[in-house]
Amino acid sequence: MHLRTLIASAATVTALATGLVAGPAQAAEDIAGCPDGGLCAYTEQWFNGTRGVVYANNTNLLQYYAFNNAQSVFNDGQDCNVRIYSGRSYTGSGVTIPRQHYFQAFAPSSPYYNNIASNKWCV
């Protein structure tokens, strides 16, 4: 039990240090219309603004407006976690978003603020 608490505390400290605010998802339909199975990026915090959605691995998400301007993201994947990266082709900083979890507000200091550059499913 103490090990779980320690691991959870370390994860929280890491998330705060990287400017991420995360949480488990509400019902999928509550997260601004993110389609089942998708990774959704939003151009504003709390899942507002323009939404973009992808369903597969991508080496260059910066070509899509919502990912190039992301301030929140939701993994509505049905089977897999997804890892997002701040660099193209799975480079730069990376963080795994569990199925049905999200980051509701990237801090301006976060490497993912306005910059989800690539993603990989089932990691």
Rank of each mutant, 00 (worst) to 15 (best):
A66R: 00
F67E: 04
S109D: 13
T5P: 00
R99N: 14
P111L: 03
E44C: 02
W121L: 05
V54S: 10
P98Q: 04
I84F: 02
A66M: 07
S118C: 03
V95D: 03
P111Y: 03
Q71G: 10
N60Q: 08
R4K: 06
T59K: 00
A70E: 11
A28F: 00
Y64K: 09
Q104L: 00
R4E: 01
T59Q: 05
S118K: 03
A41N: 11
A107M: 05
A56Q: 10
G23E: 11
L61Q: 10
R4F: 08
E29H: 06
G23P: 08
R88E: 06
A8P: 01
T5I: 10
T96V: 15
F106I: 12
Y113D: 03
N119P: 02
V123C: 00
R83S: 09
N119C: 13
E29L: 04
N75E: 09
T43N: 13
G52E: 06
P108H: 11
G49V: 11
W46E: 05
L20W: 04
D30L: 07
R83I: 13
L61C: 15
Q71T: 13
T5C: 03
F47M: 14
S110A: 10
T12S: 12
A70H: 08
T5M: 05
L62P: 06
A11G: 02
K120S: 00
A32S: 01
Y42F: 11
S93M: 02
P111C: 09
N57I: 13
P24F: 02
H2T: 08
I97C: 15
N57C: 12
D79C: 12
G23V: 10
A15Q: 05
A28V: 04
P111R: 07
K120C: 00
C34L: 05
Y102G: 02
L16Y: 10
Y85G: 00
R88D: 05
T59P: 01
R99Q: 14
T91K: 08
V21Q: 13
A107N: 15
M1C: 12
Q100N: 10
C122T: 02
D36E: 13
G87D: 12
V82N: 01
N114T: 10
Q100L: 06
H101N: 14
R4T: 12
A56M: 09
L39F: 02
D30E: 09
A25F: 09
L16D: 01
T43D: 03
S118I: 01
A41M: 10
Y64T: 11
L62T: 07
R83E: 15
E44K: 12
F67I: 03
L16H: 15
T59F: 02
A27N: 07
P111A: 00
V95T: 01
L20H: 00
L16V: 06
A107V: 02
I7P: 03
P24M: 11
L62M: 13
T43R: 06
G38Q: 15
F103W: 10
N81I: 07
G87Y: 08
L39N: 05
E29D: 08
S118L: 01
N119Q: 11
A107R: 14
R88S: 03
A25C: 13
G38S: 10
G19D: 09
